[in-house]
């Protein structure tokens, strides 16, 4: 009943309010140079990931085309980033590798959220042994350096890009449990949740309509940061020879191959690393910027 009587008023007020909120958010975000830099890098990266095969000057080089006549050429007008030991154009491989990198980042972060957020909500909304068990397991996972556990899992499953993604996903979820549990715990005693309960909202409605939306902004911020960190993790596994296998165009694996040609043929190592650095930097700056927008203390 109360719901119905409130409906027309909120409906009338909402659109301009929301519009003003959005404008304020955009203003806060665009005021910061580093946030904008992050956004530009991420947009550029997404563009390259989408259109890499069409942007690359020699797309066939990404999948093991060999041209020994053109091997280990330094950067030039024809090959901006030079060529590698089998004569593949490094620029093409870096551009096409962006898609692999994006896939890894999205998959790992996505699976981590799918596992971590529900567990965090359960642990935060219930008390007693269920939440206790979830949090203890989370703590144990958080106490192992993630890269080591990922290496152990890849060691068990066997090297390869798919197994690397599985391993990273399995070590990435506990952070979300922590985050969502803490947020849920603090939200569930807020007055607005009590009010919703008093109005007769069931536990599921409280959870999905009232608590979860308020957990979204820290999740989004963390997801943006984690995109970068997951990309870094996958590149690390690739570098160790546990992730993508050459000649697959993955940046970490490219560095692993290129390092044998240092120092004279430095470009084979330099450019893929630069690509990793810029991409991770972009996602981190984006996350920082989003946090500034979402964090009410900053207003």
């Amino acid at each position: 009943m109360t719901d119905a009587s409130l409906e027309p008023r909120t409906a009338a007020i909402r659109p301009p309010m929301r519009f003003r909120e959005t404008r304020r958010a955009i203003k806060t975000y665009s005021r910061s140079f580093s946030s904008m830099l992050g956004l530009v890098i991420v947009v550029l990266f997404l563009f390259i990931a989408a259109f890499g095969p069409w942007l690359a000057p020699y797309p066939e080089d990404a999948y093991g085309a060999v041209d020994f006549a053109a091997k280990l050429l330094p950067p030039s007008a024809e090959h901006w980033f030079g060529t590698d030991q089998v004569g593949s154009d490094i620029l093409s491989r870096v551009l096409i590798g962006a898609r692999t990198t994006l896939q890894i980042g999205v998959t790992v972060t996505g699976i981590a959220i799918l596992i971590g957020v529900p567990l965090g909500l359960i642990a935060g909304m219930t008390s007693g042994w269920i939440s206790e068990v979830i949090m203890r397991i989370t703590d144990i996972f958080l106490s192992i350096p993630g890269l080591i556990l990922a290496i152990a899992i890849v060691g068990a499953l066997g090297p390869g890009i798919l197994n690397a993604m599985i391993a990273l996903s399995l070590v990435w979820w506990p952070g979300y449990v922590r985050l969502v549990q803490a947020k849920t715990l603090s939200e569930r005693n807020e007055t607005y949740v009590d009010a919703a309960r008093a109005l007769g909202a069931g536990p599921l409605r409280v959870l999905f309509v009232h608590v979860l939306p308020n957990c979204l902004s820290p999740i989004i911020v963390k997801a943006s940061m984690d995109m970068g960190m997951a990309i870094l993790g996958a590149a690390s596994l690739g570098f160790l020879g546990l992730g993508a296998q050459p000649p697959y165009p993955e940046w970490g694996a490219m560095i692993a191959t290129g390092r044998a040609y240092l120092p004279d043929w430095w470009w084979a190592t330099f450019f893929p690393g630069l690509a990793i650095y810029l991409t991770v930097l972009g996602f981190n700056l984006l996350g920082d910027g989003l946090r500034d927008v979402f964090d009410p203390r900053q207003r």
Partner: peptide
Amino acid sequence: SVSGVALPMFWLGLMLQW
């Protein structure tokens, strides 16, 4: 500080070594 998080450690190592 931001770069410290984003730089791939192995690549930084290789560049220093180089």
